[in-house]
Design a protein around this nucleic acid. Structure first.
Lengths: 145, 145
DNA sequence: ATTTTAATGAGACTAATTAACAACAATATT
DNA sequence: AATATTGTTGTTAATTAGTCTCATTAAAAT
């Protein structure tokens, strides 16, 4: 096991403990899966990826665990509007939003400090306690133009 | 019929004509429904709202018409991540994004010229031809805090 | 008015997700 | 360490949102 995995195992354990939830092998495997590829994964993909690695976890557990991870800010939900939710590891120090090509589905990540600033202003002005956001730009990528 | 409705009837007719599509009472009724309340409506709501007003249109037609209206930029799709699509009249002169309370579901509209500017810059930098965007801020509103 | 062809309605169907519940396993209690 | 407790899991069934098919109907072109 690599160092990063050990660290993340402890992180998962401590969060489960704090929430009064139990540490299980299924939760660990799903969390590993999401950690390994920080890309935009949907529930079915995660389910099959585990299967292919010989790790048998039920679909329901995948959904339940993803839910729990989202609630605890371990992963972020990403909804590009195609009817299924995608998820990715929430690296607080590498926050980003998404540019999506409506022709080929390509996803490019972006981050803007300025947009972040204005978002916080807007939330403040409207007396909202900002929790998270979702910001997608849809267009045609260079290759598809 | 109010003046605005007449104007919009002509607008619908002309768009259908340009696209080589037919003008039907169902399309008119669905368009009226979306015009009347510029709020955030989902397909099912529109379907039932028409039913309640004694206007019988099938679900499939509601979906098909909404689709057509989105494609022709008459309405905008709004996806707040709860698994169903919402739609609203696309008033080009009153573009806005959304602040959503995760506790009560309240939706507050906002607009920022600055964010708009940075969005265009990001698209340009990545050589995307920007078509549209979706920008939601999720948080807890004043009442729910 | 008749013909052509697109649009509609009804309901079957699909995909994604959730719920119910019995069996099981991780912790707490003794 | 043994047992009780209670959360978690897998299975299956249900739900929800949206799509598809196809016979019927209605615009619009002739």
């Amino acid at each position: 096991m690599r160092l990063i995995e050990i660290a993340c195992k402890e992180r998962l354990k401590s969060i489960l403990h704090n929430e009064g939830l139990r540490y299980t092998s299924q939760r660990q495997e799903i969390w590993n899966e999401l950690l390994e590829s920080k890309e935009h994964r949907d529930a079915e993909e995660i389910y099959y990826s585990l299967m292919n690695r010989g790790i048998q976890v039920s679909r329901a557990t995948v959904y339940r665990t993803i839910d729990m991870l989202v609630k605890n800010n371990m992963i972020e939900k990403l909804d590009i509007g195609d009817g299924k939710a995608r998820f990715e590891y929430n690296d607080k120090y590498k926050h980003h939003d998404h540019l999506i090509c409506t022709a080929c589905g390509k996803i490019v990540e972006f981050y803007s400090k300025n947009i972040d600033k204005y978002q916080r202003e807007i939330a403040k002005k409207n007396k909202f306690e900002l929790l998270h956001h979702s910001h997608h730009l849809f267009g045609i990528c260079e290759d598809c133009q």
